[in-house]
Amino acid sequence: MQDIESEVRNLIAEVLEKDPAEIKADMRLVEDLGMDSLKALEVLVAVEKKYKITIPEEKLPALNTLDATVAIAKEFLAKKENNLSQP
């Protein structure tokens, strides 16, 4: 699970053109790190593509910190794995 946090941090850092070390877990992506709506969508798509999951766009406002983004990625990854394990 530590890997997911590290991977999502790298994705966010790439979109924001920042060093991953600058992205602290509880920093607000918009207010503290300068995220805009297009970049937020880019992060959403990048996370979806990385883990081959689908996150509904209604969830976009909830992707407001690294912690929150990781939690949502894990939630939909768990749903995907659960669906795959269903007979």
């Binding site: 979109v15 297009l38 970049k39 969508l41 880019e42 798509v45 990048a46 979806e48 593509k49 689908t54």
Partner: peptide, 10 residues
């Protein structure tokens, strides 16, 4: 290649 869901909006 990857599907329309995965195009980069930026």
């Amino acid at each position: 290649k990857d599907g329309p869901q995965y195009v980069n909006p930026s």
